[in-house]
Design a protein around this nucleic acid. Structure first.
Lengths: 199, 199
DNA sequence: TAAGTCATGTAAAAAGTTACATGATTCT
DNA sequence: AGAATCATGTAACTTTTTACATGACTTA
């Protein structure tokens, strides 16, 4: 089993879904911690079915194309359950913006500033969207949010990770931008003996 | 050019390095926002050289095997510089622990708790390590940290991202763990309409 | 003498992205 | 009539990981 398989199972143990709907759920609910294109999802569903983790039934529709609705089998549920508490090996983080930050000393401060302000804005907007969902959950799901055996509790916890993450990211962008913004922000003197040797 | 290429250039514009040393630099300095195995680095260096971004000289050593030391060319520097301020497209985040959190309602609370406490500990430890490097930078590099055209400023900014990230991650783990820990933490009643057991 | 570091590669497999491909129905 | 949504796939390519491969020198 690979991680994508567990992502798919994690959605299917909650409700039966077609490949198409699964993809949409991923975009909406799971996007900030896992995602996949439909070209990855359809073969993955086929693989999970070969391994007995999921099963599908064809649902005929009049006004739309027929669809295959998948649901998790008992085997699938058990496999997922066992995986949840297995230890996690740290995976290397990959973040292009931080990589750019690492080389931003080469760039025009004004252009770098624009980049970080734009990213700050983007993450703040994402944060606001997550916070709206959070409010909605607290309003609609109140009571289930403390129940450790409720999927709503789990959804809420995952969402909070998104909120913590976006808030922190936006703050870092602002921190960098503020330092790029300070006028005169500490350039080396242009034409002195002290050459700007790279270190 | 791919992102790994820019990661390699970002290190080589600071100092010439062999493939072997490049890999070590990645582990030490860049690990929390980009990384690669040596099996990816050596072919990447060859590719960058074909494209005129880097050039190598063979350095002979007596006590150790000879090595190829690479440095960035002017073309490489310019390419990197242009890339830095280009807009960043959001890449899908992938985090296995959050994925597990999403399905933790299936697991035994005690086992899930152990997982999150362990992860909290791990991220707190990483945080402490970063904070030590931060102190070292502030002590040793004081004065350069405000200079927008200094690589030290850029290193410091990237490190701060690591610090923000680890702190936030540890806090989220603690938040989840606390909710898993509360005794009786809101199970659905096992075998009655309303037993005194829960809540 | 065994383990560890220095040093550089290739090969195969897995995971993920982009592009190709089709076709019905619904909304503007 | 054209765009958007619903619906499911395959093919080609890129990126990343794991495994294979070698050899000199150093330290315990």
């Amino acid at each position: 089993m690979n991680t994508l398989g567990y992502a798919v199972l994690g959605l299917l143990v909650r409700e039966p879904l077609s490949g198409y709907d699964l993809k949409k759920r991923m975009e909406q609910r799971v996007a900030f911690f896992w995602s996949a294109r439909h070209s990855q999802i359809y073969p993955e569903l086929a693989r999970l079915e070969r391994e007995g983790m999921v099963a599908h039934t064809v649902v005929e529709q009049q006004d739309r194309p027929d669809k295959k609705v998948y649901e998790a089998t008992t085997t699938g549920l058990e496999t997922l359950k066992d995986w949840v508490t297995e230890p996690v090996e740290p995976r290397p983080a990959r973040d292009e913006l931080v990589l750019k930050a690492y080389s931003m000393w080469l760039a025009e401060p004004q252009e770098a500033l624009a980049l970080f302000r734009e990213q700050e804005r983007r993450h703040e907007e994402q944060l606001r969207q997550y916070e709206e969902i959070q409010s909605w959950m607290e309003r609609e799901w109140n009571g289930d949010l403390e129940r450790r055996d409720s999927p709503r509790f789990a959804s809420y916890a995952a969402l909070r990770r998104g909120i913590f993450y976006e808030r922190e990211y936006a703050e870092w962008c602002a921190w960098v931008a503020d330092r790029l913004d300070k006028d005169g922000g500490g350039e080396y003197p242009r034409r002195s003996q002290r050459n700007a040797a790279a270190e």
